[in-house]
Simulated assay, not measured.
Amino acid sequence: MNEKKLVGEKAAEFIKDGMVVGLGTGSTVYYTIIKLGQLVKEGLTIQGIPTSVRTEELAKKVGIPLVSFKEIGQIDVAIDGADEVDSNLDLIKGGGGALLREKIIANAAKQFIVVATPNKMVKKLGGFQLPVEVVPFGAELTEKHISKLGIDPIFRQFEGNPYRTDNGNYIFDCDISGILQPKELEEKLNMIPGVVENGLFINMSDIVISLDHEKNVVLINKR
């Protein structure tokens, strides 16, 4: 049983004719995009806004028409994955490095739907390291300011080189396991000059699609 496929395809049911759809990044929302591509071929009329270069390439491949922010007034639904989802439906995102664009699109959407397999569901955020995107200029100084918040930043690398986001920035992956107030941390991080955005998505998700113990698809709504 492909859990990611079950969860990802369910999200496509929320998309109706004429919608502008935020297309997330990751291995679960991949199946949402594939399904939407099939529905477009069958006559569904939508426009997509991708959260990453990788998603843009996939959307084009499956035939989803894409638009820019200049061409639209709003996003009807954004669908994305998560690295962790807690009991309040707060998230850690950014393992794939697209957190800035993902947050911009989720914030612009009337409805934000998260697709998450059961292994992503947690009681408390912090088992997964929190990505923090920073501009390269002064990154060493920014790292020191992040450390002062009581979290340990680790410079993300890829194949021996600094990892670069689609925006040309660096990422620090931070241990936040001892943090009790994620909303407060989100605000403090974004006040540090040099920090572009962080992967805490607090009070943003409207619905989480996951699976129960019997592998049935379940919809978890905001309390």
Rank of each mutant, 00 (worst) to 15 (best):
R156I: 01
Q129M: 09
Q74L: 11
D175C: 11
E186W: 02
E56M: 14
K61Y: 10
I151L: 12
D83L: 03
K123G: 14
L66E: 05
V67D: 03
P162V: 00
E184C: 05
T117W: 02
L185T: 05
A116N: 09
D83M: 06
M191L: 04
G168I: 06
G96W: 05
P65Y: 11
V77T: 15
G63E: 05
D83P: 02
V135F: 14
G168C: 11
I64K: 04
V67G: 00
R54I: 11
A109P: 14
I171H: 05
G96S: 01
K148H: 12
P153A: 02
K61L: 11
T51P: 00
T51N: 00
M121N: 07
T165C: 08
Y170C: 09
V115G: 00
K61E: 13
L185G: 03
G94C: 07
K70D: 04
K148M: 14
G160T: 03
P136M: 09
L58I: 10
G97S: 12
F137D: 01
G95E: 02
I49N: 07
Q74K: 14
K124A: 14
I105L: 08
T165I: 10
D76R: 15
D80N: 07
C174W: 05
Q74G: 09
E71T: 06
N167A: 08
